[in-house]
Nucleic acid binder design. Structure first.
Lengths: 199, 199
DNA sequence: GCAGAGCCTGACCGATCGGTCAGCTAACGT
DNA sequence: ACGTTAGCTGACCGATCGGTCAGGCTCTGC
């Protein structure tokens, strides 16, 4: 087995392929991404892709699976906590950090949640997203309140996800600024409205 | 030419094909939609599709073009108006109605804006969306304010667009309820914050 | 020196893609 | 009655898809 003693710059082929695949899946979409394109982009042959990953779906699983694990963990820790304002504050911060740290994967499984139905890893992502919506929003709350939560989560996600699509030709914005602003806006929308300053 | 005197139930084949195509494009995606599937779904042959529409792209143009026209008109009337709170209120209402009346088309050109780059009708949609973001948000405003607008527009859009994906197995919600709640939430986020009640 | 395992590749497969083309049928104008 | 046209279709094309397979290369353990 490769102990990789010679150079520390040695990267595993499976990692390179996984990253190339994630980039392709998130930009041109899973269906429109061919194994040939992914292989070319990573500097390997199509056969090499299928050597490291048994199928195109397995490659998708490897590319976005870890991010879904992180989302499930995030969700789990939130439902285990109290629904207090403090717990929500922590959750909002963790959620924004998750979005910022998993942009490509989130872009992939959110934007293609519908078209990729039936693929196990996508079903897992959809289940997690549904659980997220359920846990953060009291079903007994007025409908406008549910809508506020939906707009907040979808808006935050899609602002980062589609921002790459609609804003990429503008100047680069600092991730820290985005993080701060996003936490501010989400706090306004998601924290209980019992007499606290809004804006 | 068909004057269609016999029955009023006669529908044009091109319309049936266009609707079937829009449904396929919005659910499984443009790349994953084959002309054969669209033809089967509409009850025609693949050759018939290419008889009425010269190519797959032309079919996409016919399917979502009118909705983009409507969006451009909406945007044009807003930029022509004053940016007053009253004008924004009108715009918010029109925007929500646009979303509700063009769900499938919006789903298509928003969710696949990135993967379908280079297709003229998609470029037109992306330009309109960028114009929308620019016109409603003062570039000199603080960043958190810009983020608020982005979250509002993206959240409203994606709540309707992805709602079909993540919430379709719940009970049907009335469109009027959605409209009212959405207008409420958007008003909180998009109206100028100079000392008016938030929530 | 050599057997074997890990990594990688080109050749190849059946299926399906978007698109072309010749020809069929039914309705219309004259 | 007949030529024309619109609507529609099956057969067919080259390209590309995901996936299989046999074999080559390199390094290790014996």
């Amino acid at each position: 087995m490769p102990t990789d003693a010679s150079t520390s710059s040695r990267v595993r082929a499976s990692d390179e392929l996984r990253h190339a695949a994630l980039e392709q899946f998130s930009t041109v979409g899973f269906a429109a991404s061919s194994l040939q394109q992914i292989a070319d982009h990573a500097g390997y042959s199509k056969s090499s892709v299928l050597y490291h990953y048994s199928s195109k779906e397995a490659l998708l699983e490897a590319a976005i699976g870890p991010s879904i694990d992180a989302l499930e963990a995030l969700l789990g820790s939130f439902v285990a906590s109290s629904r207090s304002a403090a717990a929500r504050t922590v959750f909002i911060e963790q959620f924004v950090d998750f979005l910022l740290g998993n942009r490509l994967a989130v872009h992939t499984f959110v934007n293609q949640a519908q078209s990729l139905r039936g693929i196990p890893v996508i079903e897992r992502a959809n289940t997690a997203i549904r659980g997220l919506a359920d846990s953060i929003c009291d079903p007994g709350a007025p409908f406008s309140e549910q809508m506020r939560f939906s707009v907040a989560l979808a808006g935050a996600t899609y602002t980062l996800v589609a921002g790459a699509t609609f804003l990429d030709e503008r100047q680069q914005v600092d991730d820290d600024d985005v993080r701060t602003a996003l936490i501010t806006v989400l706090s306004e929308l998601l924290l209980p409205a019992d007499g606290r300053p809004t804006r």
